[in-house]
Design a protein around this nucleic acid. Structure first.
Length: 268
DNA sequence: AACGAGACCTGGCAGC
DNA sequence: TGCTGCCAGGTCTCGT
C-alpha cells in the first residue's frame, strides 16, 4: 500500500482487464466506473488494500479492494509498458502512471465496494478479527477467544476471524519467540502465555514491516525493487538447521496442510 | 460452533 | 530433455 501512495490524488484514464478470473471475477464494470474517478485515499484492512475513489465532483463513488493472495504483486509503472504473462489488471492514470496487478497463481482478488455502504460492511471485511498492531488485540482478548478452541494454537492464530495478519511465516516465528509449542491445544495456553504471545506477534510483525516485508521469490515492492534486507528467521524454512537459541535441530511438521517450523527444545 | 479437508492456480525444483 | 510428484506467502467453502 505504501508503494502505491504516489497515486493518491491522480485521476484514472482507463482500466484494462486481461484475465478476469482471479479468486473471484474482476467486476467488468470497473472499465466504465473508474475512468475520470480520482484516487482519494489508500487504507488497509487485514491483507486487503482499500483504494477509495471520488468522481469528478469530489463525491465518493466506491472502494477498490485488492488482495495479493500468495503470489500477487502490484507494480507501479512510471509509464505504460508491455504486459507480461501474468499481468491481469491495469489502472492507467492521467499522468501516465500505471498500477498493474501481476499474480501467477491467481489467488488474489480485485473487488469493488459500492459507495452506498462503507467498505467496512463488505462481507469479506465484516467477519475479520482485530488488527494485530492495534491496542484492542491484547492478551486478555486472545485468552478469551481461545477458551473454547481445541485446535492447535498455530492454527488458531492464523484464523483471520480471531486476529488478522498472522500468516504462515509469522505464526511460526511468533510462537518461537513466545516459546510456545505450535501443537499446543489453544485452550491449554494460559493467560501469561497469551500475554507473551500477543506481545511477540506485535513485535514480529512490527520488525517485519520495518524490514519492508518478507523477501520471497516472487514478491517485490511496488517499485519492483526488493529494497529491504533479506530477513533472517528464527525457525521458518530452517528444517534441521540449528536453533539460534539452543542449537537443537529445527523441526518441520504439517498443521492444517501447511508447514510449521519450531524448536522442540525451546518450545515446550 | 468448531474443526478438518478440499478447493482455487501456476511455477520451480528434485528425482528418475 | 522430459516426465512426475511435491512444495509454495492465503482464505473461502463445505461436510461432519
Amino acid at each position: 500500500m505504501r508503494g502505491i501512495a504516489p497515486l493518491v490524488g491522480q485521476s484514472v484514464s482507463h482500466v484494462i482487464i486481461r484475465h478476469p478470473t482471479l479468486r473471484w471475477p474482476i467486476p467488468s464494470h470497473l472499465v466504465e466506473t473508474l475512468p475520470h474517478a480520482r484516487l482519494n485515499r489508500l487504507t488497509r484492512r487485514a491483507k486487503y488494500i482499500l483504494a477509495a475513489f471520488n468522481n469528478a465532483e469530489g463525491v465518493h463513488i466506491g472502494t477498490l479492494i485488492l488482495h495479493l493472495g500468495m503470489s500477487g504483486r502490484i507494480c507501479l509503472l512510471a509509464q505504460d509498458e508491455a504486459a507480461a504473462k501474468h499481468d491481469h489488471f491495469d489502472i492507467h492514470f492521467a499522468d501516465c502512471q500505471v498500477l498493474r496487478l501481476r499474480d501467477p497463481r491467481r489467488f488474489g482478488a480485485v473487488l469493488w465496494s459500492d459507495g452506498h455502504e462503507g467498505v467496512a460492511d463488505h462481507p469479506l471485511m465484516k467477519t475479520l478479527g482485530p488488527e494485530p498492531l492495534e491496542p484492542d488485540f491484547t492478551g486478555e482478548y486472545l485468552y478469551r477467544q481461545l477458551r473454547n478452541k481445541t485446535a492447535a494454537i498455530k492454527i488458531a492464530i492464523m484464523d483471520s476471524h480471531l486476529v488478522v495478519g498472522v500468516g504462515n511465516i509469522y505464526a511460526s516465528e511468533s510462537l518461537f519467540r513466545a516459546r510456545i509449542n505450535p501443537k499446543t491445544p489453544a485452550n491449554k495456553v494460559n493467560k501469561a502465555k497469551c500475554d507473551l504471545l500477543v506481545a511477540e506477534i506485535k513485535a514480529t510483525l512490527a520488525s517485519a514491516i520495518e524490514a519492508g516485508g518478507s523477501s520471497l521469490r516472487d514478491f517485490f515492492g511496488a517499485d519492483g525493487n526488493p529494497g529491504y534486507f533479506q530477513q533472517t528467521y528464527f525457525v521458518y524454512g530452517r528444517t534441521d538447521e540449528p536453533c539460534r537459541e539452543c542449537g537443537a535441530p529445527i523441526s518441520q511438521i504439517k498443521q492444517g496442510q501447511r508447514s510449521t517450523f519450531y524448536c522442540a527444545e525451546c518450545q515446550r
